[in-house]
Design a protein around this nucleic acid. Sequence first.
DNA 1: GTCTATAAGCAGATAGAC
DNA 2: GTCTATCTGCTTATAGAC
Lengths: 210, 210
Amino acid sequence: MGNRERIIETTLRLMNELGAEAVGTNRIAAETGVSPGNLYYHFGNREEIVRALFDALEHEFRDVLQRDTERPLAPQRIAAFYLRTFDLAWRYRFFFSGTLGLLRRDPVLAGRYQALQSWAIAELDSIATGIAEDGNLAHPRGAEGIASLALNTWLIWSNWIGFLQISGIAEIRRADMTAGINQLFDVIAPYLVPPFEAAIRRAITDEWAP
Amino acid sequence: MGNRERIIETTLRLMNELGAEAVGTNRIAAETGVSPGNLYYHFGNREEIVRALFDALEHEFRDVLQRDTERPLAPQRIAAFYLRTFDLAWRYRFFFSGTLGLLRRDPVLAGRYQALQSWAIAELDSIATGIAEDGNLAHPRGAEGIASLALNTWLIWSNWIGFLQISGIAEIRRADMTAGINQLFDVIAPYLVPPFEAAIRRAITDEWAP
DNA sequence: GTCTATAAGCAGATAGAC
DNA sequence: GTCTATCTGCTTATAGAC
């Protein structure tokens, strides 16, 4: 693996451990085992490294949300969606606590993040709409209600990992992940028809022991 | 007003505008119109200024949550609670985006924040329990369901202002506030008996035009 | 209480040898 | 591609005059 990739990997590890704002280029270079000069050969500045990490995050995230979109939407797909996205958010957790600080330092990144966020919320909306069209939403509240559902899903998802870290969690345990999934699911659960809700809860449990 | 208070006020303004991590003691002193030396006469270090701001935030927050606790819980009280807490979060918005960064720099503050958070979640739980005991929860899901509701309320509340800022909102408009209140209320709304839900929605509207 | 001046340290970034 | 050495500019914080 080349130095460029090793620098990216080290940056991810350090920023997850210490927070993005506490990690400088000298530190990254030292822990990677390269010189500052070499780091600046591979990256024009610090922001470029963060952008490379965001690229990877965005790629993985879009992949998870767009995978397996056949209708009717299976409970297994929804369960898998919950698990994979939380795992993703944990692996890039530096980004989800201190997002605003990163975006203020780099307007280019800010634009990309806002676009991804808009896309994600729209995608969550269309997933919920799909569930309604499949006849699995018991108390549909119209387009406005579904939009609110989608946004709350995004708010819980994008902030659960930050909440864990603020609460003092340094290493995630299965229980922390499960708790987050329950929080997320409890936003949409009251609107689902009972058998569909039960099927998703079962699928979530099954995912842990495949 | 003495320099100490003016320094606190300036810090709040600057940190809300630029983010806590971008505001140094020199800048604070310059914008307050005092010397760095004078700033360090009033505060031992930068963290002490942030702690003073947190003290004010905590005091206001506890006050709003503990005010008007007569049972049965009136819809007006719940509506007022939504409005006041969002207003509060906006006025101290530097704290709610970048919380983790602040806590990592100051372990004393971290302890205080975690205590406040635990207290708030427990308080939200007991508010929801009170609504259930008043007979206004249509589909009670037991203690576990109420705990999940309380935590989701906290997650939405404590991150709504950050979401606005990440989305590019620099000055809050009434519509942004209303949207946040709707997001928050939509977490608990599906569990309320219809007349109680309607009364709260009405009270929220009335609060805007007293 | 308030000031000026400055110390000490670390950040991001670059020049130029190899 | 990778290195060493260094520049510049910033930060927090302090010393000592007034």
